[in-house]
Write a protein that binds this DNA or RNA. Structure first.
Lengths: 194, 194, 194, 194
DNA sequence: TATGAATGAGAATTCATTCAT
DNA sequence: TATGAATGAATTCTCATTCAT
């Protein structure tokens, strides 16, 4: 079924172009025509793959969310104790974002748009999932130890927040690199025992 | 004599309305007319105080930046050692944002806009300033101790990032409260000694 | 009655400012505020003397029309034969316009506006009057001579047109001077006998 | 394939409509929507052919200028002596304008706009060109005769001005016809010898 | 499917005019 | 009378989306 393949390939081609354009100009300033040009297709053809401009932003986020989900699943399969798994999560997430700077940049727009329209992009759910996994691992780690100084759920929020906050600074400031922040993050927020 | 009004008061009235509207609808979806209605003035009157819609966003951010600057200055005057000052900084920043949810929400739009137009809103500089203060305090704290496991500059980035990341989740998720995150943040990222 | 004098003086002050601004920027680009500033009064004060922006343009033209009318009357009282009187008319008209470059410039706008709204400014009547006087003098001159090669009415149109056309070029082109065109106009279009 | 249309034809269709609307209402009072309606297209479609309302005025003038240039070129190729060529120029110019009353009417607006923004529409250059050709022919005519009573350059200004001035009156006054003015113009201002 | 011309709703901004002081 | 803040109608231009080819 070549049709099927073509359709999918065309979709990816356009979505990739959209991500680049969104990253460069911001969603608000990105015209359908810009995306079409970047993708090397005609304006009208964008609508053969995506129903609206907004759907492109959504699809871009979905791509990141899918990879995020995969990452979370991988964490579950990762060998080692909870601390190792947590460290793996942090390192993987940072690596993913560092390798997808454009996608990370689009996050800014998704934040802006997603925060006011919970039904459209469920940012709350997205971060809740992360927090749940992190909190689970923290609880597991502390199961046989004394109660930690910080509740797992709060700790999870801080850890997830720190990742996003580092990404934020990396996106703003060319002087900030993401790679060198990975181990500090692990050291500071994923200590072997609380 | 023309209708008597305090130009500054009128400006604040409109800026306040703009912040509410931006917070509610997002900058992109906020029409000048919405802001005028919220402020109880006519569309054209907005332009007596602000030159453009964009200027309103900028002014909103400037308001936050000013208070941020004041906060940073206050940190410098705060009594106690570097660790206490750091804790004070974290607590004050969180408190400031928690008390200004609308303004915090506008941050989402400013991030989106500021990342693309560095000259317009210097987000890089904004966070650099924070990092510099934090890093300075960390160095001071460690001056007489062994070298810390994490370099002050990276630590600063993580701390500043964690604050913003917690705010982010708070803005997205009604279940996340900011207040209860303050002490965890301090405990995890501002330990008495490294 | 000082009030009476004041009102009139204020009116002149504003009208003069309006003429300067219209001449400089064109009527279309002249804001009431520009005129007020040029006159050194507040925007609202303009409306104490003139009912609308348009009325200012009209008044500017009326000023020129009045002086034109006076000129035409003076022609009637001028000593000498019809040829001398014609030459006097040409010289006076050119002199008038040369001395009132701003007013002449405003003519451009009046042409533009007046041509489509005959009821508003009766440009047709304005030029008809001129033609009538000129044609009358030409007829008088030729009363005792052979029929002229060109009918007085056509001759009048050409003469009046030539004056305006010279003014037009003078307004466009800094290289064109009006003074040196006066005698050529007389020589070419007001010959002693046809 | 997109809707099939000849881009050039569409451009002409819209420009034609614009000229009619400008002629009827004046440039200042002509809305893009009026032009679109007159052309039978949607508002936005005007912008597919012209970048702005102003560009329409410019294009209208350019059309006249092109035909004017062609006319001047034709004068150069016209058989006969300088006097015949001059007469041909006058007759052709009048004929051109008489046949394009709408375009001539738009001239009023162009005068108004062109005088204030020399860089935009170079009216000075436009008339200079005419004067140069006329002056050249006058010099040629007088080459073997006694010095003329009026310098060729002044004579040229008067002749060119007379044409424009007659057009002006024709545009204002329904009683004035352009055709009957052609021969008077030639007789008065293009005599066989000075 | 692919194209890009056509559409028209929509939005920011301007500015003549009004009117409270 | 003088002022200038306030108003809101009006207008240009943009751009997502549609659809004839």
């Amino acid at each position: 079924m070549p049709r099927q393949v073509d359709r999918e390939a065309r979709r990816e081609q356009i979505l990739g172009a959209a991500v680049r354009v969104f990253a460069r100009q911001g969603y608000a300033a990105s015209r359908i025509e810009d995306i079409a040009r970047e993708a090397g297709v005609a304006k009208g053809s964008v609508y053969l793959s995506f129903g609206s401009r907004e759907e492109l932003l959504r699809a871009a986020f979905d791509g990141l969310a899918d990879r995020s989900g995969a990452l979370l699943a991988e964490v579950g399969r990762h060998p080692g104790g909870p601390a190792e798994r947590l460290a793996f999560l942090v390192r993987s997430a940072m690596e993913l974002l560092e390798g997808e700077r454009d996608l990370a940049r689009v996050l800014l727009d998704v934040w802006s748009a997603g925060a006011r329209r919970p039904a459209w992009i469920d940012m709350a759910g997205f971060y809740r999932e992360y927090r749940a996994v992190v909190a689970g691992l923290l609880e597991e780690r502390d199961a046989h130890a004394a109660a930690p100084a910080v509740a797992p759920s709060a700790h999870a929020t801080v850890l997830v927040g720190a990742i996003e906050g580092c990404v934020l600074q990396w996106l703003f400031d060319p002087e900030v690199e993401l790679g060198p922040l990975v181990e500090p993050l692990v050291t500071l927020l994923v200590p072997p025992r609380a």
